[in-house]
Design a protein around this nucleic acid. Structure first.
Length: 288
DNA sequence: CAGCCCGAATTCCAGCGGGT
DNA sequence: ACCCGCTGGAATTCGGGCTG
């Protein structure tokens, strides 16, 4: 390597470092509408918030989560599922109007209302546990040129006197919200989707302007499914989730059409389009 | 009515096993 | 190998009640 190349590399590295530093000076998240939730693409395109059933979930230690090419996530903490993403989205939504790093006070009651859940003993208990579990996480997220290292939420505790939950987000999280690094996801559609996989697919495809066809195996990997039988996954979980998503999207005036193409060799390809005019490969038997 | 709590019923994913 | 319905365990809802 020549001296010229070395100094160019240095310059580029310094520019990137400066860019990250200037980001940290603007400590506010971008704003989005009441009916939307802003989520970093890398979180939507990975298995971090898995599409798995409720139930026992293991503790992961510095695990590399399945993800699309230009992002990577190393995760330590309890295995997360879509419910946790829903909670996290709400926390970020509440905190987006204030400076990151500040204390953000909300009551459990308010959070449950935001989450569209009934205010019951069980739900409150689950929410408290989820907040504690989200706090006890460690991530290293690389998203294009930006990286974030830290917890999903810095602090989450209960003020026993007021009964309020105190949330503090890490100010460095703003790095994941730069430019087109995040997606505004429709809250109304997400809320109406029944299964966790439908929620995951909704977030995943929301980050794509014109999605590639993915194999069922790739989607299975990316969504973090525990299903041991790819066939079960394709015919039960994925089929109902895609149908649910198409129906719910339509009821909210959005286009979501899909087609599962069975290819020779047992592989299946999932075609998706959100463009009303786009054509899907013809296959009348299994067209969505 | 907001906020908190309880118990029974329901829902969900994935595994299992019987039938063909 | 494949289809199909049943089942377990956990989360969530439903429908109530209580307090100030």
């Amino acid at each position: 390597m020549s001296n010229l190349e070395l100094s160019l590399d240095n310059l580029r590295a310094r520019q990137e470092a400066n860019a990250q530093k200037s980001l940290l000076r603007q400590l506010q998240l971008p704003l989005w509408a009441e009916t939307q939730r802003g989520v970093p693409n890398s979180l939507l395109r990975s298995a971090l918030f898995a599409a798995i059933q409720r139930g026992k979930r293991p503790f992961l230690k510095r695990q590399l989560m399945a993800s699309v090419e230009n992002a990577s996530i190393t995760y330590t903490g309890i295995r997360l599922c879509q419910d946790y993403l829903t909670v996290w989205e709400c926390l970020v939504h509440v905190a987006r109007e204030q400076q990151l790093g500040n204390r953000c006070e909300v009551t459990t009651y308010q959070l449950l209302k935001l989450l569209d859940k009934k205010d019951t003993g069980g739900n409150r208990q689950v929410l408290r546990r989820q907040l504690a579990e989200l706090q006890a996480t460690a991530l290293e997220v690389r998203q294009g040129r930006y990286t974030y290292s830290g917890s999903l939420i810095d602090e989450a505790y209960h003020d026993e006197e007021t009964g309020r939950a105190i949330i503090v987000l890490n100010q460095r999280i703003v790095a994941l919200y730069q430019g087109d690094g995040y997606t505004k996801v429709s809250w109304q559609i997400r809320r109406d989707l029944r299964t966790s996989l439908a929620k995951w697919l909704h977030g995943f495809y929301a980050t794509h302007r014109q999605p590639f066809p993915y194999t069922v195996a790739k989607l299975h990997e990316l969504c973090g499914s525990n299903a041991k039988s790819l066939k079960d996954f394709e015919e039960k979980t994925l089929a109902t989730a895609l149908e649910d998503l198409a129906t719910v999207a339509k009821s909210h005036g959005e286009h979501f059409r899909y087609l599962v193409e069975r290819c020779p060799g047992g592989k299946s390809l999932v075609h998706v389009t959100r463009n009303p005019d786009a054509k899907l490969p013809l296959n009348p038997q299994i067209c969505g």
